[in-house]
Simulated assay, not measured.
Amino acid sequence: MPPSAAPHADGVAALLSRAERLAARRLRGALEETGCSVEAWRVLSLLADDPGQGMTSLADRTQLPPPTLTRLMDQLVDDGLVHRRVDPLDRRRVLAALTPRGRQAHRRLAERVREAWVTLPEDADDVLLATLLDRLIARLEAPVALPAPAGTAGEPAAARR
């Protein structure tokens, strides 16, 4: 796509939002008979890939508010899928990891999720899409200084009211 035809940022955001909703719908369909929510699946998947994550990291990566994540983690602990422990290097942090039962549940759920995605026709651009999404995520995670609104540079706050 030539630069002049590049989609507006709002258009990209809308496309990403629609794709996320459709992906979540597919995930819900794969998980609905298991009693596992999409949010719980995301936590289990993150812990399967990287055990011993802190709650702040999990909240960031799942996009869940900390109180919601805490309630979800309490349920996963009660179900025997996750255990929490105090970080030995920083006693203020709590680390989470899958229990053996949680690893078994994750493997079972991962198979259902894979089956739900296998029904999608293969596309030669899948690797390219994943690469571009990874690059976009990295760009969006980078801190950016936003410009001041027009006409406000150097004006005291009282003058702008």
Rank of each mutant, 00 (worst) to 15 (best):
R160D: 01
A13H: 15
A110Q: 12
E20V: 04
G154W: 01
G102S: 02
A150W: 12
D90Q: 14
E111G: 14
E20S: 06
A59G: 08
L72Y: 04
R114T: 15
L47R: 04
L16R: 10
P7C: 12
G29F: 04
T62M: 03
L133Q: 07
L128S: 02
A48H: 06
D49N: 06
D123R: 14
V43E: 01
L109T: 03
A97F: 01
L31M: 00
T131D: 11
R161V: 02
D78S: 13
L98I: 00
R26C: 00
R161E: 06
P143I: 00
E39V: 00
A6R: 07
R112M: 04
A30K: 07
L72D: 11
L98A: 08
L15K: 05
S17H: 11
V86R: 09
L15T: 02
R101Q: 13
G102F: 00
A142S: 08
L16P: 04
A158Y: 03
R108S: 04
T99D: 09
V12K: 06
D123L: 02
A97P: 00
R135F: 09
R101T: 09
L16F: 08
L98D: 00
L136D: 08
H83Y: 09
A30S: 03
W117K: 08
L72R: 12
T68R: 10
R107Q: 14
V127E: 14
V38I: 14
L76C: 00
A96N: 08
W41G: 00
Q53H: 09
A159D: 13
R93T: 03
R26H: 07
W41R: 03
E155H: 13
R28W: 04
P149A: 14
P121N: 07
R101W: 04
V127M: 07
R101D: 13
L47I: 04
S37N: 06
D78R: 15
E111K: 13
L95H: 00
R28N: 03
P156E: 13
L72M: 08
L22Q: 04
P7N: 05
D50P: 00
Q104D: 13
L69M: 14
P66T: 12
L76I: 01
P143C: 13
D134W: 13
V113K: 09
G80H: 10
R112W: 03
A13W: 14
T62D: 03
R21M: 06
V43R: 13
V38F: 09
D87C: 09
P7D: 05
D79Q: 15
